[in-house]
């Protein structure tokens, strides 16, 4: 397989397979959660479940001071790499071009040096998060193989993307192909691992908020 054939396979059949698994997987997982539902609460409502649900979706985005004091490091590092991923994935011109091609929607890109710097910060933040997970006895105790695996799948596209952008070591088409392949691995694993939190976090926030709202409690 030549470098061009590899790139074409990655951009063609492999991308279709990854997209199909990703879309089917995510929809199945979300529908399973929604259809399973919750036990009906027979107590008299003391507040609005809907209002509570929406409120919590928004309020949980910002940590309360108690949580911040307890695990400020995790919060900051988490915010940095999540923001970094958002910028590198969604505000880099070639990525927007892919989204535009697939979904027909596009938006302006950030200057590439900004995205480049963000990628470096993201990689550093992800490494720091891993070191913290290994060093902290409680986190280490709670960590399973999957936690390390999804960390690897997350950092891999950032690193391969950075290397492809700067064209280090291998012919550029091969570097781009490796980068796209690493994203495809992430897409395939996404629905079936903890990575699915990107879609399910709002559902769980909603349930927490709705339960509290029904009871007339702020959450």
């Amino acid at each position: 397989m030549t470098e061009t054939e590899f790139l074409l396979w990655v951009r063609g059949p492999a991308f279709q397979i990854a997209t199909a698994i990703f879309v089917v997987g995510i929809i199945v997982r979300i529908l399973e959660i929604l259809i399973l539902g919750r036990k009906p609460n027979l107590a008299e409502a003391r507040g609005s479940a809907v209002a509570g649900g929406f409120r919590t979706i928004i309020t949980r985005t910002w940590p309360d001071s108690g949580t911040f004091k307890r695990s400020g490091f995790t919060l900051i590092a988490g915010y940095v790499f999540h923001t970094g991923l958002f910028v590198t994935i969604l505000l880099f011109a070639p990525h927007i071009l892919v989204i535009d091609e697939v979904l027909g929607i596009g938006w302006p890109a950030l200057p590439t040096p900004v995205v480049d710097a963000t990628a470096v910060i993201t990689i550093i933040a992800l490494v720091v998060v891993l070191l913290h997970r290994i060093k902290d006895p409680v986190l280490r105790f709670l960590s399973r193989f999957q936690d390390y695996f999804v960390w690897f799948l997350t950092i891999l596209p950032v690193i391969t993307g950075y290397v492809a952008f700067h064209r280090i070591g291998l012919p550029p088409p091969t570097l781009i192909a490796i980068h796209i392949l690493s994203v495809e691995l992430l897409m395939i694993a996404f629905p079936f691992t903890k990575l699915a939190h990107a879609f399910t976090l709002f559902i769980s926030r909603w349930y927490n908020g709705a339960i509290a709202g029904y009871r007339g409690v702020n959450s």
Partner: peptide, 28 residues
């Protein structure tokens, strides 16, 4: 551009979504 998929991904997304809904309803 070199980064974009070579096949009709919008169609794959559409078919994938339809399959996902059917499979999700059945599993649910």
């Amino acid at each position: 551009a070199l980064s974009i998929p070579t096949e009709d991904t919008a169609r794959t997304v559409l078919y994938g979504a339809a399959t996902g809904v059917a499979a999700g309803l059945a599993l649910g």
